[in-house]
Amino acid sequence: MTAMTDGSSSSLPAVAPDALPLSRGLPLGERASAALEHPAVQVEVGSLHAYYGRHRVLRDVTFTARPNAVTAIIGPSGCGKSTLIRCLNRMHEVTPGARVEGEVRLDGSSIYAPGIDPVVIRQRIGMVFQRPNPFPTMSIFDNVVAGLKLAGIRDRQLLDEVAERSLQRAALWDEVRDKLKSPGGALSGGQQQRLCIARAIAVEPEVILMDEPASALDPISTLKIEELMDSLRASYTIVIVTHNMQQASRVSDQTAFLTVGDDGAGYLVEFDDTATIFTNPRQRLTEDYISGRFG
């Protein structure tokens, strides 16, 4: 169970990039030493195009999110980061008129292949949204185990177990253990977001997608979420969208930089290890963006 899978963070450079002034997470090199609890799977994106109606918002995106690593997607507002991440668990098609072309492979098999049920894909690939969205009518407990309960799993003992375990892993257990029956909406914003993370990991997905999970939160809550991501890496493949470049450099192993092309569609400018992107980018656009010279 603790065996290092091939291609996990071991290929990262061992040098901490001191060029990053605000980096306060673990030095990049030390991440590889975090214990691997459970091997995760990789997500390959190949020549992905996304549309809203006739309007193309993503053009030809290709990259691979490594297993047991955090992949950050950065880029200016409106470049299609949310759209991209929603394509990874077939949430994009929930919007009426939205459509995808190209490939997304989970552990080698296409999630868009004919006959594949999006419901199953979404069980295997969890998602956390920008704004915390606990189910309004459910208690904290019911929120956490919603994915299991609504799938028809009633085993009380198992649900109790899962709830505690998930809340612990989401670093929320100590704060809510005495009020599991109170409504999820009664928590603070940061707690709600961790509740949503607990809810997402309770169904034991193989991949967790997070769309700006901390952008609606205060700095302390943000720090908690970032620490959480760091520990979740031990069991999951994580893809995170962020507006905040410091955050990307703090938490991620790889970074994808998107921007908007002349045709109005977002495209992938550069994809590499986070250290490379932030210290030694190959593209001029990337350099401009991370150094704040970009509009």
Binding site: L148, A151, G152, Q168
Partner: peptide, 21 residues
């Protein structure tokens, strides 16, 4: 953080058995 070996696989199997058609 306690590690329960096999826990994820157990839940994944359970879920796959509960897939409504």
């Amino acid at each position: 953080m306690s590690v329960v070996p096999g826990q994820p696989d157990r839940i994944r199997t359970l879920l796959s058995r509960h897939r409504p058609r």
